[in-house]
Write a protein that binds this DNA or RNA. Structure first.
Lengths: 354, 354
DNA sequence: TTGTAGGCGTTATCAA
DNA sequence: TTGATAACGCCTACAA
């Protein structure tokens, strides 16, 4: 009735071999005769043996050491992500897995490279990093992989690289989603969307814009793109100018950061005319408040909570060399005022501590 | 540099007591003098000792036995959920946790009770079940809890009960979200929403309607509610009637199941007039296809994948008597045509196998 | 090519 | 009130 799961000892017994031989077969260590191999395999499937990962790790004193490398700086989104990693790290101590969160200067691939080389020498079992497009990053990932250290790209992929997996959204899909919502919100009427990005050269922003273009149609047009460099001051002035220059604008889509500036513009708009429809990315403190205040309509979010969970799960699987289950890309989630998740406790300010 | 995490032996050594004594203190087994207790606690925090769960479970030959009880029948949503549980169960074999998925006749609390009583006698470590409102269920949960078996309610809560946690969406929030989207889609114009539910007596459906009511305003009104008993044939005829009887209807919100019927009605609508805005619940085969075909606008989904993950994680934590982290309710997710997740492999048909 | 045995960190039993 | 120690299932060094 209450039979415990079979152990390797059970398998060995049934196959009529020693424990060590059964182990050699099961773990493919070689040096076993064909006849024996078959006997052991038969016993394994007859008994339904499944290796006990916990016991295995215990015997090896296996400690998982993972590192997440995030861009440093004052970005609210990555501050949130850092929080999430740290909370997760605390929860995992009892499972003998450590997760260190590091920050490197954003967009400086030399610094990143140096840091990763260092980590490679220190017995790290897996690394998660926010990808960037340059070839230098591709190389580092290849180097790490050759040393047996799997790399998972996070938020932004490094397509040509040997990363084991990408955890993040598809930005074309995200932009397309925004497009659909814009269509819906215009309800067949004509309209003009003002697109705001950090820079058109940024891959993710460009992808989002492309997704938007693919979906909008009918009487909806695009105004010329504003590049706000993800800085709220620049976003503020440029958007304010664009709105006063072109009264036909009915909607704003901000594909990048610096949205505090955009929100200030909307807030300052005269109450006489209906404000434009506003959709932007990432649920952070200021976008949440704007949504609650009715200043903006929709926030499209890449769910950092889910991303963090997947990164950790994925790294663990890779370190265990289990079948990599690694499910598909993250689905961008749509927040309106009514389905906001409960507010979390904020720890990292996003500003460098020192 | 590469120091392994401290073990209880390290703690004992530092506290100047035997291993067994340190164990007694750490696990609160009593029978230790105050002085000693303090010494051990001091050592624990000095060294930063964290109990190694894997080793503990190994020594106890701990095998987690969880059971998920789902309503049987031809509901596509629960078929999907069953799939998800089964996939998760397979993945967990190596971690010595078994998860059996059972189905009981929907809405028959006597059958449910009998099944649960049986399980209680069989050494189950935790149960997930889809709640229903009746007092009988409240009692069973209390009984299980008194036997030390934690219960997690899933999809539908049992508020007055002693369930350890609820994993599911807040249906008022879900309805409110729909309300907001309806407002957005009408863009200030007037409109009339046709609400479709399974039954007004169903708690979740009623909650969704309430959420909707709380948000809509302006020139948006509600037509009288259709009760379709979650049957696609009834939904089909009633919705068709309502639409032809009231041409002022601009939108349909289906808070329940039986949406295949609703979709057929929309499909058959004359192409002369713009079709109504349609929002419904749960991403399943037919709602996905309708979204892709442009027959409906939005699907609001409770993310069964995430629910299953949380149930398992929660049950495990409860069984381990760790701090129950159990995060808040699931946030209903909004799908449009563009952000559909990749289609999954379908296993359970939703129809009883025999 | 095959077998033996000690150790991983914890629990629990038996002694002192 | 305290201490010693045999499991638990697996890995691995060593022996045959």
């Amino acid at each position: 009735m209450h039979d415990r799961p079979p152990t390797l000892a059970d398998v060995a017994l049934r196959a009529g071999v020693s424990y060590a031989t059964a182990d050699r077969v099961v773990n493919g260590r070689g040096g076993v005769s064909d006849k024996t191999v078959r006997r052991v395999h038969a016993a394994v499937s007859a008994l339904g043996y499944v290796r006990n990962v916990a016991a295995a790790n215990l015997s090896q004193q296996r400690v998982y050491r993972f590192v997440a490398v995030l861009p440093e700086g004052s970005n609210a989104f990555f501050a949130r992500m850092r929080d999430l990693f740290e909370v997760a790290a605390a929860r995992m101590a009892a499972d003998r897995v450590t997760l260190a969160v590091e920050t490197v200067a954003a967009f400086d691939s030399d610094v990143l490279r140096a840091r990763l080389d260092l980590l490679a020498g220190q017995g790290v079992d897996g690394i998660a990093l926010v990808g960037s497009d340059d070839s230098s990053t591709v190389e580092v990932i290849a180097t790490l992989r050759s040393k047996g250290i799997p790399v998972v790209t996070l938020v932004s992929d490094v397509p040509g690289s040997e990363r084991a997996a990408y955890v993040g959204i598809d930005n074309v899909i995200a932009g397309g989603t925004v497009g659909r919502l814009m269509m819906l919100a215009h309800g067949g009427r004509s309209g003009r969307i003002l697109p705001v990005v950090g820079a058109l050269s940024a891959r993710d922003h460009a992808d989002r814009l492309q997704g938007l273009r693919e979906v909008i149609g009918g009487d909806i047009t695009l105004a010329s793109v504003i590049e706000g460099r993800d800085r709220h001051d620049l976003v503020e002035t440029h958007v304010a100018e664009a709105l006063s220059a072109d009264p036909s604008i009915t909607a704003i889509y901000s594909a990048g950061a610096g949205n505090a500036g955009l929100i200030r513009v909307v807030e300052a708009l005269p109450a006489t005319t209906p404000r434009p429809i506003v959709i932007l990315h990432e649920l952070v403190a200021h976008s949440r408040r704007a949504l609650e205040a009715g200043l903006i309509d929709i926030v499209i979010d890449q769910r950092p909570e889910e991303e963090v969970a997947r990164v950790i799960d994925g790294l663990r699987q890779l370190a265990d060399r289990r079948e990599p289950v690694m499910t598909a890309v993250i689905v961008p989630t749509i927040y309106v005022r009514e389905n906001l998740p409960p507010e979390h406790q904020h720890t990292n300010t996003g500003h460098p501590a020192r």
